[in-house]
């Protein structure tokens, strides 16, 4: 078995008296999509924030590619190849989509103490930025100011910006948040297309998407991983059904169908 790209060992984080992350163990293998699901308030976004360095970790270890990054600031993690998308769209609203993505490219093209040449006419930034937009299907909107884009386009831009940092691993925090069924389906295809080149840790509420994409699923409840395994195991796990899936499957009985997983295995 391959060495995991990301390894989380006994991670903790508390806010006041509340344990948001409770002795969490998790790993992501190279080329794997590992989904993390859990009800609202399970600590999924806290976990992402700890993994990316936006939040300081109380105790435990985060190992990325064999290196302990637990205390590294966000920008260092980004340079090691760990990229994130935000659950709540967090882009540069006053800039065009291409500018947004070009800034992400720029962060990984040497230092930025370059004061003279116009950045917006630099093909070394513009071309990779445009390619990242192409991969999420947003290239036709490259010159539109982000503030004038739709919610779905913002979600695509989120992914494009993460991709533009040439990451080895993507942490996607609810990429389908607030999307309609059609947009979600499109996003599933985008994420599936990324899988060949990137390991992905996917936090998502959309069960269709999770069960069709994930190689493994970890279920988080109150900051603690109550189960981890292949989609079928998770679906069959009685604890998970009780804690989480019960309500979902009751509401949408045909939601987690095995077809998605099969087609993924073949593709």
């Amino acid at each position: 078995m391959a060495e995991p790209l990301l390894k989380v060992e006994g991670l903790n984080k508390s806010f006041g008296g509340i344990l948001a992350t409770d002795n969490l163990f998790l790993d992501v293998l190279p080329g794997e999509i590992h989904a993390v699901i859990g009800p609202n308030g399970a600590g999924k976004t806290t976990m992402i924030a700890q993994l990316t360095g936006a939040l300081k970790t109380d105790s435990g270890k985060i190992i990325f590619d064999g290196r302990n990054i637990t205390r590294e600031p966000s920008h260092v993690r980004s340079h090691l190849g760990l990229a994130r998308s935000f659950q709540i769209t967090s882009v540069f609203l006053d800039m065009t989509n291409l500018d947004n993505t070009a800034l992400a490219v720029q962060a990984h093209d040497g230092h930025s103490f370059r004061f003279w040449r116009p950045a917006r006419r630099d093909p070394a930034l513009r071309e990779p930025a445009l390619r990242a937009l192409e991969r999420v299907g947003l290239d036709h909107r490259a010159d539109v100011v982000a503030a004038n884009c739709s919610h779905g386009e913002h979600r695509q831009l989120e992914i494009a910006m993460a991709l533009a940092t040439k990451p080895r691993m993507l942490l996607l925090d609810e990429p389908m948040a607030g999307m309609g069924p059609e947009e979600s389906a499109q996003m599933v295809e985008i994420i599936r297309g990324l899988k060949d080149e990137h390991s992905i840790l996917l936090v998502e509420h959309d069960m269709d998407a999770v069960f069709s994409l994930a190689d493994r699923i970890t279920v988080l409840v109150y900051g603690r991983a109550i189960a981890s395994g292949a989609p079928d195991e998770i679906r069959a796990n009685p604890d998970v059904r009780e804690a989480y899936l019960g309500e979902e499957t009751a509401a949408a009985p045909d939601a987690p169908t095995p077809e998605g997983a099969d087609s993924r295995a073949r593709g």
């Binding site: 882009v91 800034l103 990984h108």
Partner: peptide, 18 residues
Amino acid sequence: MVVRGSKSNDARMHAIGH
């Protein structure tokens, strides 16, 4: 561009590696 990006959204700037 880095200075402007930082004005616009500093958290994102860190996340993308600046």
